[in-house]
Amino acid sequence: MATHFLADTAVLTGRTLRHVTRSVDTIVTTAVTPIAMMLLFVYVFGGAIDTGTVPYVNYMLPGILLITIASGIAYTAFRLFTDMRSGIFERFQSMPIARSGVLWAHVLTSIAAIAISLVLVVGVALLMGFRSGAGVLDWLAVAGILLLFTLALTWIAVIPGLTAKTLDGASGFSYPLIFLPFISSAFVPTASMPGPVRFFAEHQPVTSIVDTIRNLFTGQPVGGDIWVALGWCAGILVIAYALADLTYRRQIS
């Protein structure tokens, strides 16, 4: 069975990837909202926000990338939910295949789809004047953190994808996640926030991730932030994976 896991997962991933390439609109919509926010913040609000010598588009891009990921996983939950509702899921479950392959196919597809959306967003940011002094290693580190964050959020998305009763329930969970970067250092320096809000902003996962990516982009030392960021991502990933796996086992037994 284990020997088939990779082959089966590859076949099933090919299937879900085709779902994405045949509805390119899902990738575009994933990218459109963050791009619109980026335009709004850079050209409307940005002038009023003091980020020192850093151009505002450089300052806010890390937060926009996290919002892209958070809106991308809504489609992950949507695709999984649609599969659960159709007869094809039961067909797979009654076949002699590696059962977890069905879930991994959705997870890998989620990563691929979100990666494309991220590239689109970065492309638009470059057009808007985003410039980075980051070297190859810095970019790899940024990619690694984004990948880990995507993986963690994707496993969160698996849970509503498996358990939701309605389509809105399957994708609605992502709204708070999309909102989270607003109460962080993503758009406004936390120093300007009142006490309790500032405390929350400085101790939630997004701030450490945003600060790390921002420092990597500007070629600054990342300091201890990167370990806090990686700790959050890994922690969320482990807990979300464990819960998703438990949910899946309950559903199929």
Partner: peptide, 20 residues
């Protein structure tokens, strides 16, 4: 696992992938 090797299921709702 042996049962799954021995069977095929055609469920109540057509178990086909509409997008493929």
């Amino acid at each position: 696992a042996d049962v799954r090797e021995s069977i095929s299921l055609t469920g109540q709702f057509a178990a086909v992938d509409e997008i493929l």
